[in-house]
Design a protein around this nucleic acid. Structure first.
Lengths: 182, 182
DNA sequence: TAGATTGTTAATCGATTAACAATC
DNA sequence: TAGATTGTTAATCGATTAACAATC
């Protein structure tokens, strides 16, 4: 039974797995506090918890997605895989045909109800999958509704205030890096 | 007229724009050859051409996309924006309803015709937007057909030989980095 | 206790920046 | 020529690795 459950791991073992120098690993971990025990190593499950904390993966994020087009639908469905830490709680569109439908596990609301649903559902993050020319307007509305983190799929440079974190999911960048390695 | 057309730029000016040290810029550029002229600076249009060459953005890439689902359709349409350096030349799916249709500017072919179309059209790169459980099979077929660069959107770790460059477009990573900054 | 392994200080290495001869 | 600016060598800085006292 002795080695059926690995309880601890040394910086040396981690270094082998991660192809890193053990001293580097010890230094990195020590930066966030004293995790390990001298002569013993690091408690694996405690370490996992700590790393989750450090990477802020120990919380649950509620997402609002704007734009129930092909990309929006794809992401909403994809969402089901990654339920652990994130979930799309509401989808917004202006198309009356789409409003009221369910996509994945979330309902489609009219864009005009954005503020209300974000507040009601405690949504913290926005995903924008509308056409480029609509994206800035949508971003502004999300920000007005209190959203401080936005993932933008529209191929346009959005202007957001400095207290809002914006990330662009840019297909072009991905393609370029592939082109480079070709 | 003298300053209507800026012909050259100094490492100092570039440094201001890019928020980098001028020496760093000179060193980086000099690494790829002698671009600049002493006492003058860098010829702007020549520099742009050179950088495109360095980043391998001076060529045109033909793409084959497998999986005409929501995500595949979204990317095919999106594609119209970025025609400069890339274009999706063929889309593959097994759904007979979709075969023969046009999405964006590309035609949908049956997956069985993958090899033929890739050869006929000189396609160099593959994008995978099929469900996770199909992705490995599709990757294998692309590789068999001679593709050496794949952008994978399926949430699965594909196994590819070392001479194939694989890039995963992972929504989870994007969301996590947003979560971090929240 | 002896062996193992941490956290941290000291040594090494590499990357960034400054300085300068070459030259436009 | 004098001023400007490169490419590159030398100096500086920071990050990585090695070494080791502390201790389980």
């Amino acid at each position: 039974m002795s080695d059926l459950h690995i309880q601890t791991v040394s910086s040396y073992e981690l270094g082998l797995k991660l192809d890193m120098n053990p001293a580097q690993i010890r230094k990195d971990l020590a930066y966030f506090g004293e995790f390990g025990r001298k002569g013993i190593g690091y408690d694996v499950s405690y370490l996992i918890e700590k790393i989750k904390q450090i990477l802020k993966l120990d919380r649950f994020l509620k997402i609002g997605l704007v734009g129930a087009g092909h990309l929006g639908i794809a992401i909403s469905n994809y969402n089901q895989y990654i339920k652990e830490n994130f979930s799309i709680r509401a989808i917004f569109d202006t198309d009356p045909q789409k409003v009221g439908q369910k996509i994945g596990s979330a309902e489609v609301f009219h864009l005009d109800d954005l503020q209300r649903e974000i507040e009601d559902k405690g949504i913290q993050m926005g995903i924008i999958t509308v056409p480029a020319q609509e994206a800035q307007k949508v971003a502004d509305r999300l920000i007005d509704a209190g959203i401080r983190a936005i993932l933008n799929f529209a191929p346009v440079n959005l202007k957001v205030p400095p207290n809002v974190y914006l990330r662009n999911a840019d297909l072009t960048t991905e393609l370029q890096s592939l082109a480079y390695y070709l």
